[in-house]
Design a protein around this nucleic acid. Sequence first.
DNA 1: TCAAAGTACGTACCTTCGGTATGTCACCTG
DNA 2: CAGGTGACATACCGAAGGTACGTACTTTGA
Lengths: 211, 211
Amino acid sequence: MRTRRQRYSDSTKRALVDVAEQLFTEHGYAATSLDAIVAGADVTKGALYHHFSGKQAIFEAAFERIESRATASIGRATEGRSDPWEKARAGLHAFLEAVQEPGYRQVVISDGPSVLGHERFREQEERSTYAIVDEIVRSVLAGDEWALDDQMLDTFTRIFFGAMSAAGGSVAVSDDPAAAAARVDAAIGFIMDGLRQLLESGAASGVTSRT
Amino acid sequence: MRTRRQRYSDSTKRALVDVAEQLFTEHGYAATSLDAIVAGADVTKGALYHHFSGKQAIFEAAFERIESRATASIGRATEGRSDPWEKARAGLHAFLEAVQEPGYRQVVISDGPSVLGHERFREQEERSTYAIVDEIVRSVLAGDEWALDDQMLDTFTRIFFGAMSAAGGSVAVSDDPAAAAARVDAAIGFIMDGLRQLLESGAASGVTSRT
DNA sequence: TCAAAGTACGTACCTTCGGTATGTCACCTG
DNA sequence: CAGGTGACATACCGAAGGTACGTACTTTGA
């Protein structure tokens, strides 16, 4: 069992991340001061710098929390589906939902890359939402019959991940998000149908390693 | 003819943007101080604030210059091609090249959205590289036979733009950029082939407005 | 049980940096 | 040639991230 001091410590740390997540979401990274965060959590900078090495570190804590929520949400939507194409559609749907959340848009998409840097941002991504997209892409494209190699599958994942992120962003700023999401759904579904047909007709020369 | 004072003024302004572009590219927005910029251009802050309203403004000037270079580069690669599918392939190639440039990656992709804000970033995009992608997508998909409506074409453009940006980013950080670019080329070409086949077979229900 | 040690903060201060207010001098215009 | 204006330079301010150090409570060990 945790000691009393540890419980208190955890509680203040959680409070700091709570406030940080909210303020970073609401005003963005640059416009959120550490003073505002510690004031919101009702502590001082001493507490913040005891738990985190600096502004970037507490941002990353909020970032990870938001990412993991999104990942969990998409995971719930896809689990239990057996047909890979149906799973892909469900995942796409959930992804489009998740990416519209204000926190995800501001913290992950907008501020994430510039604050964490390309490198670190990529690392964070790869073990969260990107991993799910990768799993879905592989379940759809990695049939024995076609034999796309690993790097080619990575490439497809990157492409779909980028496509869905961009599409999700456009959905989020749309006047009519529901209609926009339906269009994205249709467009990506259409692209997937094209891929499927091409693969099943055996016309996949150029991307598969077998002839 | 411009007066002598105007010529001097233009020259210092150009020098400021030159240095700003280089420093923003090299160190990112946050890690680039105005003091460093004015020192590099051999002027003082008074000069900078005479020509620009602030840090964001001079960043935007560098941003626009980088974007317009990329746009011009892609434009040169596609002009003169008559066959839309071939034009699309050429454009894709040029886009993958352009997006690997350090300035484009750091200033446009990484810092752009967070510094300019979603709104303004979107505006800038739409009259540069995004416009070219849109033109290419429309030349390929907007045949009379299929009758995709305007919003659907926008959706496809968004998707392809996002896909290619993400793919370009992954190419840029790859150990073997040439091989990675070839894979992206193959993958997107494959997706386009799928689309083409589906459209020409008339199986485009769901995305077209005609039956 | 009690003192030593360490944890979890609070307080005060430093430095950097974006931005502003104001001064100055060369250049254009009437 | 004289007044006005544009193109800067200089000096300064306030906010914000980060640091050094102090302090009180808690756990630990003899």
